[in-house]
């Protein structure tokens, strides 16, 4: 049970399922205050009913990014401040090996990129002024290379990594922490049927422990080592490999 969240004020964007839902649950259980943001409010309600004093649900579709600053402010009002924000919203639709579907790809860009920009820009504006807080983005090991299976998902996560790196370079000197988490496959709706996934409660507990550690983090040592190597494989060789 993470104890370092007692009294802390958090926003979880994408809190209706997967890592986001589990993060919200662990923060609330650990004595923190959490604003849960998601499109599907009915999924947020049970946690809010269980901890009515500490959980504040907000309905919002991250693709409606013009609305983000206002919902963000409603969250900080409800919380009475902000210590950290975790952007968890992300989609990875199935893509066939020969499929190039722009509509599907742009829908992914909307959630994984545009929504992240809208929310994390709001958080960055606030934290640059107030000089404290953590911004945490859920990237992915998938963002480390462009692979055959998921061209746009890979690039959307690579975008997030670079965007967070830039925020980090801007904000660290203001006392703000910026954390990139690169989970591997984690049990969620996104990874149904996959093998070797990490239990979602483990992933969430690790993320909470890393929330104030500025930098990029893998959740497993094996990932850290594997991706250290994978990132350095020259492209002409990489394209011949089946990874």
């Amino acid at each position: 049970m993470p104890t370092k969240v007692i009294g802390q004020k958090a926003i979880i964007v994408g809190a209706s399922s997967g890592i986001g839902a589990e993060l919200a649950r662990q923060i609330a259980e650990g004595g923190g205050l959490v604003a849960t943001v998601a499109r599907r409010t009915d999924r947020l309600q049970p946690l809010a009913d269980k901890y009515p004093e500490r959980v504040f649900p907000f309905t919002h579709d991250v693709t409606n990014y013009a609305e983000a600053p206002e919902v963000f402010q409603k969250c900080t009002d409800a919380l009475g401040g902000l210590d950290f924000i975790i952007y968890c919203s992300g989609v990875m639709p199935e893509v066939g090996p020969h499929e190039y579907n722009t509509e599907k790809d742009l829908a992914m860009v909307d959630v994984n990129i545009s929504g992240a920009i809208a929310w994390l820009n709001a958080a960055a504006t606030r934290m640059e002024s107030t000089g404290h807080g953590s911004i945490i983005g859920i990237g992915s090991v998938a963002g480390d290379r462009g692979r055959c299976a998921q061209p746009v998902y890979n690039s959307s996560k690579a975008f997030l990594h670079t965007y967070l790196e830039a925020l980090r370079n801007r904000l660290v000197k203001k006392g703000v922490k910026v954390v990139t988490i690169k989970p591997g496959p984690t049990e969620s709706e996104m990874t149904q049927g996959m093998k070797g996934t990490m239990p979602v409660n483990d992933a969430a507990a690790k993320i909470i422990n890393l929330k104030d550690r500025t930098g990029e983090h893998y959740l497993k040592l094996t990932h850290r080592i594997a991706f250290f190597i994978i990132k350095r494989i020259p492209s002409p060789i990489f394209r011949k490999l089946k990874i």
């Binding site: 600053p69 206002e70 963000f72 402010q73 409603k74 900080t76 401040g81 902000l82 709001a122 504006t125 606030r126 002024s129 107030t130 000089g131 404290h132």
Partner: peptide, 22 residues
């Protein structure tokens, strides 16, 4: 209606044990 986020500032009481963003 929301207030411009760039109005935000962190202030503390003189003893620096209590702080707030507003």
């Amino acid at each position: 209606m929301h207030l411009s986020l760039d109005r935000l500032a962190n202030v503390t009481g003189f003893g620096m044990t209590a702080g707030a963003d507003g």
